[in-house]
Nucleic acid binder design. Structure first.
Lengths: 166, 166
DNA sequence: GGCTAGCTACTCGGATAGATGGTGTCCGAGTCGACGTGG
DNA sequence: CCACGTCGACTCGGACACCATCTATCCGAGTAGCTAGCC
């Protein structure tokens, strides 16, 4: 699974605690997380295309959440980055080789293997669908060391201040 | 997800209906499924290393299941091919960047995002763990067209006969 | 006839190229805010 | 003092290289069975 997913989720959690109306550019998000700015921008574009974040161009521009944090599930983010295609792709190899006889009528029922894999993937998706960015933030707030939380909040406040001053 | 997983599972279902003591070489399995023989062999080696199938060298050699078909789950096959590493790898980017302060003590609790992803992956694994090769074969037997089933059985019987004659 | 040695053919197994997708970077189009100027 | 035009700087967005992994292939090591010769 792509590493960008972790970046994208973390970015959403940061954008979620942004003051109403404020915005944060990709470069600042990259600096906060210590990742390559340009590449992170690429993933943010994917989130934008999926309608999870809004992009504001020009000076004082940047990204902000397009929906409420509790309306964005982890599955939304994952699918925005990785695409909605299922991981397991059945190529119907049962229809190939010497044992394949009746092309059309014999294969009306779906491949049992594909069905089992689909059930597993649905279970995975259901689990991700049940967790929102807001939930993640709540867990992080409760679990992380207070100093850590304060450092993040300070940096964020300082960055916003700095941008509004320029 | 690798395409070889589909091949590997199909191969296991074929090996499961092999008469006791018989064996089937990779080339025949590839012919049956209409896939490249050498590449399929590579995946069968992975199954062998994982202890799911036994490999017999030399003339009249080939592959056969190392366990009973109901003791081999889809998860076993998937992990044999893809490796046991989880799809989502947390790189702890929360510990990077300007907001990271206390390296050791602040991060005792696991990352909330990684935890959520792990729960989802566990749900996926549990689903795959609950389905065995024997289950798959049972579903396929019931769902597939009788002609198809007969064609496969005939081909298999013919191949075994051919090999024992040579 | 029975046994043994050698041989042949067939099997897996790992080492070796090629293609596809993720990773990383760059520069251009567009936009907002600030500034200076004129009314 | 206010409105407008210009400028500048900053933002996203897509187009361009690079690299790792999956895909595909080949040839060599090893083994089982057959065959021929010998006792």
């Amino acid at each position: 699974m792509s590493e960008g997913i972790e970046w994208a989720i973390h970015c959403c959690t940061v954008l979620a605690v942004l003051p109403e109306g404020e915005t944060l550019p990709a470069a600042k998000l990259a600096e906060f997380h210590g990742v390559p700015p340009a590449y992170l921008g690429k993933h943010l574009q994917a989130l934008s295309r999926a309608g999870l974040v809004e992009s504001i161009a020009g000076r004082q521009g940047g990204f902000r959440l397009a929906k409420s944090a509790d309306e964005i599930s982890l599955l939304d983010v994952v699918q925005a980055i990785e695409g909605e295609a299922s991981a397991f792709q059945c190529t119907e190899i049962r229809q190939r080789g010497p044992a394949a006889v009746a092309p059309a009528e014999a294969y009306l029922t779906p491949c049992g293997i594909a069905a089992a894999m689909a059930r597993a993937e649905n279970a995975w998706q259901d689990e991700l669908k049940s967790v929102s960015i807001a939930d993640i933030n709540q867990v992080v707030m409760a679990a992380v060391h207070p100093d850590q939380l304060a450092a993040g909040a300070d940096w964020l406040a300082g960055t916003i201040q700095e941008r509004s001053n320029s």
